[in-house]
Structure formats: C-alpha cells, structure tokens
C-alpha cells in the first residue's frame, strides 16, 4: 500500500477561526499551488490578497476566495520591483487592513541545460525567486515592526535547494538562497515575533497547468506522464495541493509559534531517495533533448 490518500478536499486541519480577522498576502495567489494555499487560509477564516502580474490570474484567485465566503482583493505587482511591492501593500492595506501573513509563492522556472541558459534567463529567475522574496519579506516585516505586531512569512521553496537542481540551475540557486534567507531573517526578526519558514513541495501536479511534467508537455498528455512518474516515487503517489495548504496554515498558525527559520520538505521522501546503486546516469543535455522531442 503506497502512502495513504489525504482527507478529502474541504476537510480542515485547523478550525475555521484560526486566521479570523487576519489578512494573508499571497504572491502568485491566482493560479496553481498559490491559489490552493490561499484557499486553505480562507477556509481557516482569513481574507486574502491575490498579488499577481496577470489580471486574469488575479480574477481567478479572487473568485476562488469569494466562493469560500471570504473577502479577497487582487493587486497588480511585479515583486522584482521593491517600490511596486511597497505600493501594493499601501493599496491592499487601505482596502482590507494590515497584512498579518505573507506567502512568498511567486516563482519562475523552466528546464534548460546550463550551457544554453542565457544570462538574462538566470538573472530573471533569481530576480523573481530570491530578490522578490526579499522585497516582499522586507516590506511586510518593516510594516509589522512599525506596528509593533508579530507576523508570519512562508516561502515556497524546492527540495532541490538542498541537493542542486541539474537542468534548473537558476531556480535551484535562487531557492537555495531563499533557504539561507529564511535562516538569517528568522534570527533577525524572532525578537519581534515575526516568524519566517520555507515549505518545499515535491511533485504536486497542478490541476490547471502542465507543471513539472515535461518540457513543453501538452495538457492532454498530462495524466499519462503522471502515471509514468508514479513509478519513480517511493510514496507511490503524487502530492495533492490541499496537503500543502494544510501544512502552510499549520506553519503560519500560533500552534507553530516556536517554529521559525525552518525549511520543511513535503514530498513523500522523494528527495531522500538515494541508493548505493542508482539508475544509469544520463547527461542532462541528452535527456532534455530526448524529452523535448516527445520521448519518455
């Protein structure tokens, strides 16, 4: 029997008043895992800020939160721009009230062998993932410090931050930077009751995107590719977005008051899978090209 399926959609780990009268600001909160995490906070009583560059994504996120019965506002922001981040906080705080929890979820990533990765590609991914996380965290924390109130930050990381990420060197370096930032900021802000942690999801195929299936994979090919991936996972199943939501709400709740500066990997032990004898090694360049041409 593989790892058990989680409780059904809508089941709640924490009660519906856990985040009552709190505002949760989610970058990239209009799609995929960001939206799923935002929805779980809403089920636990929070109002949500859906921060995104894309108007359609923002509207999707707001609709999902309102369907749960909570308030939501969308705000346009490019997190690479610290000034724009500050403005976005001004806008949403005027409308909803002060932000209590920040989820640094927005990211950019794509597979490419390192020698074909342009300097611009590297810079862009690091700018969104690492600099964007810092910009939002700094803005959030300075407002909380000013108000004399604690708060919680959760970064969305990646298991390969610990091992390196061949074929995603830019993202892996940026996510490793986020882990390190988590450690530094936690010590700096613990005396002010501002906690910061990182949640690193394993393979969580997103219902509305091809996600990490294969470079350029068509959505209609998705289920077949997931089925193939299952055979590679020790837990025998992929992650469900709601499981990330539950862990995210736990880490930002008062029940985790003493957890800060911590990186949690939720991946069914997949990143730990290292045997003395591995599968035959294939260079990244070759596997990338093969898969891009539709191969397995």
């Amino acid at each position: 029997m593989p790892l058990a399926q989680p409780p059904p959609m809508g089941a709640q780990l924490l009660s519906e008043d856990t985040f009552a009268d709190q505002r949760v600001y989610v970058t990239g909160g209009g799609t995929g895992l960001g939206k799923a995490i935002a929805c779980e906070f809403a089920r636990c009583g929070a109002d949500i800020v859906v921060a995104s560059r894309d108007a359609e994504h923002r509207q999707d996120g707001v609709n999902a939160i309102e369907a749960i019965g909570r308030r939501a506002v969308g705000v346009e922001v490019d997190i690479r721009d610290a000034g724009a981040v500050a403005e976005s906080f001004d806008i949403v705080e005027a409308e909803l009230g002060p932000v209590d929890v920040l989820i640094n979820n927005a990211a950019g990533n794509f597979e490419v062998p390192a020698e074909r990765m342009s300097a611009n590609a590297f810079r862009t991914v690091v700018d969104i993932v690492l600099n964007g996380t810092f910009n939002c965290s700094r803005e959030f924390a300075s407002r909380r410090l000013q108000a004399g109130r604690g708060g919680a930050i959760l970064n969305i990381g990646a298991p390969y931050a610990a091992t390196g990420g061949p074929s995603t060197a830019h993202s892996a370096a940026a996510k490793a930077g986020v882990n390190n930032l988590t450690w530094s900021l936690a010590v700096e802000w613990a005396p002010d009751d501002i906690r910061i942690n990182t949640l690193a999801p394993g393979y969580f195929p997103e219902p509305d995107r091809s996600g990490w299936v294969s470079p350029g994979a068509a959505l209609d090919n998705r289920n077949a590719q997931i089925a193939e991936r299952l055979t590679t996972l020790p837990g025998g199943r992929v992650g469900e977005a709601r499981e990330l939501g539950w862990l995210a709400t736990f880490l930002c709740s008062p029940f985790a008051s003493y957890i800060t500066g911590h990186v949690v990997v939720l991946d069914g032990a997949n990143w730990l899978r290292r045997g003395p004898i591995g599968d035959p090694f294939e260079p990244i360049r070759e596997s990338f090209d093969r898969r891009r041409e539709g191969g397995p």
């Binding site: 790892l3 058990a4 399926q5 989680p6 409780p7 089941a11 780990l13 450690w183 530094s184 936690a186 010590v187 613990a190 394993g202 837990g235 199943r237 992650g239 469900e240 499981e243 539950w246 862990l247 736990f250 029940f255 985790a256 003493y258 957890i259 800060t260 500066g261 911590h262 949690v264 990997v265 939720l266 991946d267 069914g268 032990a269 730990l272």
Partner: peptide, 27 residues
Amino acid sequence: ACVLYACTPFAAYLTGHTFDIDGASWQ
C-alpha cells in the same frame, strides 16, 4: 502540536522530515 500534525492523516505526504522547533536557535 508538531507531533500531532506529523501523525494526522493531514500529513499523509509528510515523511522523512525533521522539524526543528527551536525558534531559530541553531542559525
């Protein structure tokens, strides 16, 4: 709280993890 979470079905995908519950002491 952390032990309870780790043992609930809500953590069905969590395995192999060590939770530091130390208020950022080791860093």
